[in-house]
């Protein structure tokens, strides 16, 4: 597989808004002292390694999925956001989207 990207318009810094959000959330938590960056890197690289066992990661969407999974596990472990809490809150957001009229701001 060739690594070299097609020469085209410059790629956006973040392909999806949630990539930017999960990135910012992690940086902010690190700076707020919730964890050291070295600890983050250790966990994140372990997730990438695990994901990369069965397929080749392209560094795009799959990269941020690994990032999110790492952050969820880390926060659950720290007790800052348990798996159950995260699942309940995710469902609340999903319901909010599905019950908000198109075009209106989505709130919990």
């Amino acid at each position: 597989m060739s690594i070299c990207p097609e020469v085209a318009a410059p790629e956006p810094v973040f392909a999806e808004p949630w990539h930017a959000q999960v990135f910012a959330l992690t940086v902010h938590l690190n700076e707020a002292g919730r964890f050291s960056w070295a600890d983050w890197v250790e966990r994140f690289s372990a997730t990438l390694k695990r994901h990369g066992l069965s397929r080749e990661l392209d560094g795009g969407e799959d990269y941020f999925r690994a990032w999110l999974e790492t952050l969820e596990m880390f926060l659950a472990e720290q007790g800052a956001a348990s798996r159950a809490e995260a699942e309940v809150m995710r469902s609340r957001w999903e319901e909010a989207y599905l019950s908000t009229p198109h075009g209106a701001p989505v709130k919990l």
Binding site: W18, V22, R65, L68, L108
Partner: peptide, 11 residues
């Protein structure tokens, strides 16, 4: 994943 990020942010 976007919903999961929003969930973490809210919590």
């Amino acid at each position: 994943p976007a919903l999961r990020v929003k969930a973490l942010e809210t919590i």
